[in-house]
C-alpha cells in the first residue's frame, strides 16, 4: 500500500458514520474513553498478576500455568472492552492518529503483544512451567504491555 493510499483510508475511517457521530457529540468521546481506561485496568491487572508470577515475585505456591489460566479469561474480557471502545475512538479521529507517532508505536507493540501473548507466552507456560525462559517471558510481556498502555495514553497529548 502506498502512503497516500493509507492516508486516504484514514480519511475514509474518519468520515465513517460512527466517526462523525462521535465527533458530533460533546460527551460521547470522553465516556467511551473512560470505559477504554477501565478495560485497560482489567487487562493490566491480568498482565501484572500473570507476569509477576512468571518472574517469580508472587503466588509462588501455585504453578505458573494455574496463575496464567486464572488470569486468561479476564485478559480476554479486558481486551474485548478495549477493542470495542478503542475502534470508535480511533474512527472519531483517524487522521490525527495517522500523524501521531504514539499511535503507530502503540499499534506495532499491540500487534506484537497479542501475537506474543497468545502464540508464545501462554502456550510455553503451559508446557515448561518454570525456569529462566519463563521469567524472561514474563518480563517481556510486562514491558510490551506497559509500552502499549503508555503510548496509548500519549496519543491524547499529540
Amino acid at each position: 500500500m502506498e502512503p497516500n493510499q493509507i492516508i486516504e483510508l484514514f480519511y475514509f475511517f474518519e468520515d465513517s458514520f460512527i466517526g462523525q457521530y462521535i465527533r458530533g457529540s460533546t460527551w460521547l468521546f470522553p465516556v467511551i474513553e473512560s470505559f477504554h481506561l477501565l478495560g485497560l485496568a482489567v487487562l493490566g491487572g491480568s498482565v501484572v498478576i500473570g507476569d509477576f508470577r512468571l518472574m517469580g515475585f508472587i503466588l509462588k505456591t501455585e504453578s505458573t500455568s494455574y496463575v496464567v489460566k486464572q488470569t486468561r479469561t479476564w485478559f480476554k474480557l479486558g481486551f474485548c472492552l478495549l477493542v470495542l471502545t478503542g475502534v470508535p475512538l480511533f474512527l472519531s479521529e483517524a487522521v490525527k492518529c495517522y500523524y501521531s507517532r504514539a499511535f503507530w508505536i502503540k499499534m506495532i507493540c499491540l500487534t506484537i503483544g497479542i501475537a506474543f501473548t497468545f502464540f508464545i507466552r501462554n502456550p510455553l507456560v503451559l508446557k515448561i512451567e518454570e525456569g529462566k525462559l519463563i521469567s524472561l517471558l514474563g518480563l517481556s510481556s510486562f514491558l510490551l504491555w506497559t509500552v502499549v498502555a503508555a503510548s496509548g495514553r500519549w496519543i491524547g497529548f499529540s
Binding site: L37, L38, A41, G44, S46, V47, V48, I49, A149
Partner: peptide, 11 residues
C-alpha cells in the same frame, strides 16, 4: 494511568 492499572487490576 499505569499505576491505576496496577492498583485496580490487582484489586
Amino acid at each position: 494511568v499505569l499505576f491505576i492499572c496496577f492498583f485496580f487490576g490487582t484489586l
